[in-house]
Design a protein around this nucleic acid. Structure first.
Lengths: 208, 208
DNA sequence: TCCTTCACAGACCGACGGTCGGTCACCGAC
DNA sequence: GTCGGTGACCGACCGTCGGTCTGTGAAGGA
């Protein structure tokens, strides 16, 4: 199956070319301000080619979105799964996420535009993204064990994701992203340690 | 000044009419799917009238956004300011916010569409919304006092706002909004009590 | 070699956001 | 009152953009 026919390879190449150009434009100008004609022209193709590979503008965005998301999701999951302790895993994933927030592509595609563009498709229907399952994986040990009693996994994942997005926006707005990242780190750490200390039995919480 | 000329009253009336119709359409179909022609036709006016009052589609949305936001922001602030204790104020405002999340207008306009539509205008420039100052007001006592040491007010407000948005999205997606609201309430309460207990000196945190 | 398949071309369409010259009712000045 | 100015509103028009449709030429199995 690694041996592909010439036609398939060419088609895949143009598809990736289109996704690449689209990604560049979406990140730079945003979804609404990017014209399909512009993408097509920069790729040296005609509109027919684009619509042969993607059913519409939103589908093209979705393809870009998937690539960008997978790039960071992989790093975050890897960081989290490398830890044994559930709390440490959360902490590590959180740090990896904040690193991702320093990348313009992640901010523009995943944080800003995805909400509106994919609203009708991914949320109203049963489809789900990658972030929530990811968060669920990381948070499950906390809910399953005796800590955090009576807390729904889904709600917790949503609230956590929201908090992460909030910090992402703060970093996105800041003049100095690096410094903002450090600030966000402090806040998230305080919240994390707070929840941990208050809901852990038999653990003398370190106060300073 | 309550005595207004006929022309002014008429103009204001049409302006409010347009905002009302626009709000209805934006909430029902979302920003992108709503056509200016449709709004104009439903209002029984011509396009010229609309563009006489609003510089563009985004300006019209901003007007709707301001109205919707002010409606809920007033309720949230009132609930928060009615409390003496800072933590109780946060708790009360939080509850009022979750109530607001049950309203479709707030979800669609403020949570979903505002992020993208007002992105270029409100974020890149120095302009700020109403939510963040509001949150800052509520959170200032916590940061100023000895609790939550070393935490930046702005970051905390952003993360808190994000968490609230996350819960809002969870409620928006849920089949049973009322039940979802209750779930979100539990999660936010756990986080709140956690942070409070872990960072309050001389307060024996109630564990159950 | 033929002929099916398919990636790709590019002219075309309808819809939508936005513009602009024109019209007419209102309002202050004399 | 009437007269000139103002401004709310009209609606035809334009440019752009997402999306469609028919065509075409090369790839590849028979």
């Amino acid at each position: 199956m690694t041996v592909k026919k010439l036609r398939e390879r060419q088609a895949e190449a143009t598809r990736e070319l289109l996704v690449g150009i689209a990604r560049e434009r979406f990140v730079e100008q945003g979804y609404a301000a990017t014209a399909m004609d512009d993408i097509v022209q920069r790729a040296g193709l005609a509109k027919g080619a684009l619509y042969h590979h993607f059913s519409g503008k939103d589908a093209l965005f979705k393809a870009v979105y998937d690539v960008v998301l997978e790039e960071t999701a992989g790093a975050v999951m890897a960081a989290a799964l490398a830890e044994e302790d559930p709390w440490a895993a959360v902490r590590a994933g959180l740090s990896a996420f904040l690193d991702a927030c320093l990348l313009p592509a992640f901010r523009r595609i995943v944080i800003i535009d995805s909400v509106t563009v994919l609203a009708a498709r991914a949320w109203d229907s049963g489809t789900e993204g990658v972030e929530l399952p990811m968060l669920r994986t990381v948070l499950t040990p906390l809910v399953d064990s005796d800590v955090l009693p009576g807390v729904g996994l889904d709600v917790l994942a949503h609230v956590a994701l929201g908090g992460l997005y909030g910090s992402a926006l703060y970093i996105a707005r800041a003049a100095d992203p690096e410094a903002a990242r450090a600030e966000a780190d402090v806040v998230l750490d305080v919240i994390l340690r707070g929840v941990r200390a208050a809901n852990t039995t038999g653990d003398p919480h370190p106060n300073s």
